[in-house]
Each structure stands twice: as C-alpha cells, then as structure tokens.
Simulated assay, not measured.
Amino acid sequence: MSLFQSLAAVLTPAGLLWTVVIIGIATFLHELAHYALARTQGVAVKSFSVGMGPVVFRRPWRGTEWRLSLLPIGGYVEIDGMALEPGDDGTPHQPVRGFAALPAWGKIAVLLAGPLMNLVVAIGLMTLSFSTQGVPAPDRVRIESVVANSAAQRLGLRGGDVITAIDGRDIPESLVVQGRTVAGWEAVRDTLTRAGRHRFTVERAGATRQVAFDWQPTLNGQRQLLGIRYGPDVRPATLPVAFATSWQVTAEAVPQVLRSFAGLFQRFLTLDLSRDENVSGPIGTAEIVSRAAALSPWALVQVAILLNLSLAFFNLIPIPGLDGGRILLVLIGALRGRPLSFSQEQAINLAGFAFVMLLMVFVVVRDVSRFF
C-alpha cells in the first residue's frame, strides 16, 4: 500500500476540512489577541495573516494589511517595533518606537494575550460542553459500546450500562494504581488485571443487576479482553458547576501536558521516531479530527478544546521564539534594569525559532514514518 493510500485510509475529506477550520480559528483568535493588546496600547500592527507562506489575498483596513496566506498552518501579526527598521542611510537600526518603547508590563501583556486567548476559548468550550452534556462522574463507569462476540456480550453487558460498584464496593472518586493516582473509573482496568471471580453492579434503565464472572487476565500466554469501551459517567451540571469543573480539568491537565512535551523533546534529542500517543503531528491531528467528525459535533468540540489547550501551553514554554521565550527575555531585561540589546534578542529568538522549526520537522517525519 502506497503512502497516499495509507493516508486516504485514515483521513477523510470532512476530517481534513474540520482540521483546517479548527486550527484556523484557534490560530486566528491567538493572533487577534496579540493584535488587540498591541493596538490598545497605541502600537501599530503592519500586517495580520491567517496562514503562512505566499499571500493569496490582502486588504488594508485601519492601518493594517489583512492577509490570507496559502498554507493553513498558523498565522502571524507584524507588530511595529518588533523588527529592525531601515534608517535614513538604508541600514537596519534598532527600533525605538512601537513595541520596543513599551514598558516591560506592556510587552508582556501583548505576548501573553495569545496563549491566554486560547486558554479562554478552551475553558469556554469546556463550560459549554459540561453544561449541556454533563460533568464527568469518576465514581461511575459508563459502558460506551460492547464488542460483538466478546466476553462482555456473553455476560449480557450493553452499551449505556453504568457500573456503580465492583466486587461489592463503591467505585471511589480516585484510586492509586501502581504508585500513581488515577480517576476512579479506571478501577475497571485495575480489576481486570487480577484473576479470580469478580462482580459488577450495573444500572440499566433505572434497574440494578449483578453481573458476576470468572476472570483470567492471560490465557495460554495471551492477554484477555473483556470487550467493552468505557469511560466516566456524567451527571447534569449547572453553569457555575460546569465553569468550575472546566478550571479543575485545565489545572489537572497541566502536569500531563508538560510530561507530554518533555517526552517529545527527549525523543527529538535522541531521534526516537517511535509513536507517542500523547503528541500528534499534523497527520495524527487530522486523523483524530477525522474520527471525531464521524462520531458527533461534540467530539469535534472536544478536539477543539485539546487543540486550544495545547496551543496555549506550548506557546508558554520558555523557548526563545515562542511567546513564553519572549516573555522570559523581557523579564530578564526587567531584572537587569535594562533590556537586552535588540541584536541579542534577535540572535536568541532566531536560535529558538530554528529549534522549533526542527522540532516541527521531526514531528512531521515521525508522523509519516508510521506508514512505512
């Protein structure tokens, strides 16, 4: 099977379209926040582009050239005072106006606005999802689907069943498995690692029944599967509860996201092309969106939440060239009592930008390599 046949097998036209739409909106809002904070402080913005590469459409409006570029892989704003300016003699000079003339807090406000916008979008979408779909109930396990001809089907389990207790004990909000704390609904997985007789207390259509079975995690050297897809149940939530839960989920996601990025950097430095389910490149992202598009609009909302959170957290990493790295340089200048020279900042940011570009190339190569 060729590469194009392999891609066609996992990507759909609807998935590709939604990938462009979701990433495009997330990027547009990110750059719009930079634009707004610059203009609010009286700093001109020369251009605003959705997309990268060759410009296919441009229109001046309110002192800014608004552009649509060919490649739907990001965007940029060209803020006055963030690049060298040509002097009277034609040679480039360090800027003294616009962004360069702002106090440290003003520069940080402009740089921080983009990631914060993506964070606000993610929390807003989560609040909408939780208030309409319900908040996770980690002490209850909802069976989403049952594999045909599986042990679960023979036991009479069905999609929509809710497991409320295991072996006569209520499922806790959280539990410790192999030294790490996980959500209570993962008690199902923990139970299926232990041989013996087990019993699920199952709710279906308001009635409760007991499902008892003998279990062997491995048989003849092969891992046994019960045959269910499951996750936490949900319970109805008011808007304040949905909003509070969104913040809680975001806070809990921070360590996991940081571990994912740390794993990516480690793989990059060791040129490890093995697949990492926690970090996806453009093809992996389009594949996830394709699957979500085939499920429901709310699945697409979940993908949009993850992409906005990832964009916010990634841009806050203190790598020169990213928003977080630029903020770090501003803070260093504030602590020194004088900012770094423009040539120093440019050299540091250029090195950071080159690192980020190499990292993106690595992610793309790793994405493609799994098809060979």
Rank of each mutant, 00 (worst) to 15 (best):
Met52Tyr: 01
Arg235Val: 14
Gly231Asn: 08
Leu116Arg: 04
Ala251Arg: 09
Gly90Trp: 04
Ser150Glu: 08
Ile79Leu: 15
Ile166Thr: 06
Val363Met: 03
Gly75Ala: 07
Ser290Cys: 07
Leu219Thr: 07
Val121Thr: 08
Val141Phe: 10
Pro232His: 11
Gln346Asn: 14
Gly124His: 11
Ala14Ile: 03
Ala195Thr: 00
Val356Ile: 13
Val43Ala: 13
Leu340Glu: 12
Ser2Asp: 14
Leu3Glu: 12
Leu300Val: 08
Arg223Glu: 10
Ala9Gln: 12
Ile25His: 03
Gln266Cys: 13
Met117Ser: 09
Leu322Gly: 05
Val177Arg: 09
Leu71Glu: 00
Met126Val: 06
Thr40Met: 15
Ala292Lys: 01
Val43Phe: 06
Gly75Cys: 11
Ser2Thr: 13
Pro318Ile: 11
Asn308His: 09
Ser274Leu: 10
Arg180Asp: 15
Pro255Trp: 09
Phe313Asp: 04
Leu264Thr: 15
Gln178Glu: 15
Pro60Thr: 00
Phe130Val: 10
Ser150Thr: 01
Ala205Gly: 11
Met360Phe: 02
Leu119Ile: 06
Val182Glu: 15
Leu295Met: 13
Ile23Phe: 02
Leu3Gln: 11
Val365Gly: 00
Phe4Cys: 07
Thr193Trp: 14
Gly281Pro: 07
Ala195Arg: 04
Phe200Leu: 12
Arg39Ser: 11
Trp18Asp: 08
Ser6Gly: 08
Ile171Thr: 09
Thr238Glu: 08
Gly263Asn: 06
Thr193Ile: 04
Arg154Ser: 13
Val364His: 00
Gln224Val: 02
Arg189Val: 03
Lys107Leu: 11
Leu329Ile: 05
Val234Gly: 05
Gly74Ser: 02
Val254Ile: 15
Ala312Asn: 06
Asn149Trp: 05
Val176Thr: 15
Val365Asp: 00
Ile22Val: 06
Leu3Lys: 09
Leu116Glu: 03
Phe57Lys: 01
Phe28Trp: 05
Ser290His: 01
Val56Gln: 07
Gly168Phe: 05
Glu31Ala: 00
Pro60Leu: 15
Phe48Val: 10
Leu29Ile: 14
Leu273Thr: 15
Val50Ala: 12
Arg235Ala: 14
Thr193Cys: 10
Ala148Glu: 14
Ala83Cys: 10
Ala100Met: 04
Tyr230Pro: 02
Thr193Val: 07
Arg235Lys: 12
His93Gly: 08
Ile305Asp: 02
Leu328Lys: 01
Val20Arg: 02
Pro232Ile: 07
Leu358Cys: 12
Val289Trp: 01
Ala165Glu: 12
Ile327Glu: 11
Leu116Trp: 05
Arg169Pro: 13
Ala36Arg: 08
Ile327Trp: 06
Val361Tyr: 03
Ile317Gly: 03
Gly81Gln: 06
Gly196Glu: 10
Ile25Tyr: 01
Leu269Cys: 10
Tyr230Val: 01
Gly159Arg: 10
Ala14Gln: 09
Ala253Trp: 10
Arg235Asp: 09
Leu157Ala: 07
Ala109Met: 11
Arg366Thr: 12
Met357Ala: 12
